[in-house]
């Protein structure tokens, strides 16, 4: 009995996800079909790519709002280079590189100038968004060649390359976090920064690395997303980062840092995806969808914080 309780506490989010999956599979026609599930996996790929590394940044004790801006700017720069050179590979390389650079810029502001990461990345968001307008000359950009759309749309074993990419990124991020020295240092830094420092860990380097990697991941997510729509457009749209943060936080990764896991984020991303898919299939009014979604997030987070609370 005690063990079962312990288990459900630890794996709460996974259990809820499986429960909602089974519920929808039983009750909702069209949910448990190959096509629908493949679609869900494909749709979640961009969020998963960014959220895996967002999890690492949050565990290290920071926050990154600028993921949205990097998500918008990177594909613009990719297409800019691709249009100019005609070389797709060069374009993608440039797009990822600018993401890494923007991550590095965040890292410098946060770890060197010690600006609170929430404020810092909110400020850099505006800079990056502005950069997007600059690169694109305020207009929609399209790829010159046909190959661009293949980045996200190539099918391997009937599953899109976007989904495969996200799987690879999730695995890489998980290995980094759980099996390497870097991962341990991330947990230590977020858990108790002063103690980590006194144990000889270069705390600034750990946090900076996390930011840079997230910049790269957000850039990849942006490229995948624009490859899917075969275009890119400058905007001031913050919605991507909220979707990413929702997945990380509903997964139960502590905003205070030092605690969390990538599998939790993945489970939460699917939990949210199943739910909104279930709404659509059941033709719930989008107005109600929002209200229920918000409520479910509150309940999920409340249950999680209750179950992780110490037994007092």
């Amino acid at each position: 009995m005690n063990k079962a309780l312990e288990f459900s506490k630890k794996h709460g989010i996974a259990i809820i996800t499986i429960v909602i999956f089974i519920l929808l599979a039983i009750t909702t026609e069209g949910f448990f079909t190959e096509r629908n599930l493949r679609n869900i996996i494909d749709q979640q790929s961009t969020i998963l790519i960014a959220a895996s590394f967002m999890t690492i940044v949050i565990i290290s004790g920071n926050f990154d709002i600028s993921v949205s801006a990097i998500f918008v700017v990177s594909p613009l720069f990719t297409l800019f280079v691709e249009n100019a050179t005609g070389n797709l590979f060069l374009g993608v390389l440039a797009g990822i590189s600018i993401g890494l650079c923007m991550g590095a810029f965040n890292a410098i502001v946060v770890t060197y100038f010690k600006v609170n990461s929430f404020i810092a990345t909110l400020a850099t968001s505006f800079m990056f968004f502005g950069l997007g307008y600059l690169i694109s000359d305020r207009s929609l950009m399209r790829p010159a060649g046909e190959a661009y759309q293949q980045i996200a749309r190539t099918k391997i074993f009937d599953i899109t390359s976007a989904a495969w990419l996200s799987l690879i990124i999730v695995i890489i991020a998980s290995i980094l976090l759980t099996r390497t020295r870097f991962g341990r240092n991330v947990f230590a830094t977020g858990g108790n920064q002063e103690a980590a420092r006194l144990a000889g860990i270069n705390v600034a380097r750990v946090q900076a690395t996390a930011f840079i990697l997230l910049g790269g991941a957000a850039a990849l997510a942006g490229i995948v997303s624009s490859s899917r729509s075969i275009s890119a457009q400058p905007s001031d749209d913050f919605s991507f980062v909220f979707a990413v943060l929702t997945a990380v936080i509903v997964g139960g990764t502590s905003i205070a840092g030092g605690k969390g896991a990538i599998w939790r984020t993945v489970a939460a991303a699917f939990f949210l995806a199943f739910m909104s898919n279930g709404f659509n299939l059941n033709q719930v009014d989008p107005l109600w969808q929002r209200i229920i979604l918000g409520l479910v997030i509150v309940i999920a987070v409340a249950i999680d914080s209750w179950s992780q609370r110490r037994n007092v």
Binding site: R184, F187, N192, A195, A199, G200, G258
Partner: peptide
């Protein structure tokens, strides 16, 4: 260090992780 809570331990991490931290290399 002087204060085990503030400067010494990651209270929410395992004994294993806390002990080996400086010598992970």
């Amino acid at each position: 260090p002087e204060s085990r809570r503030d400067q010494g331990l990651m209270l929410e991490r395992s004994l294993l992780e806390n002990t080996s931290l400086p010598y992970l290399k």
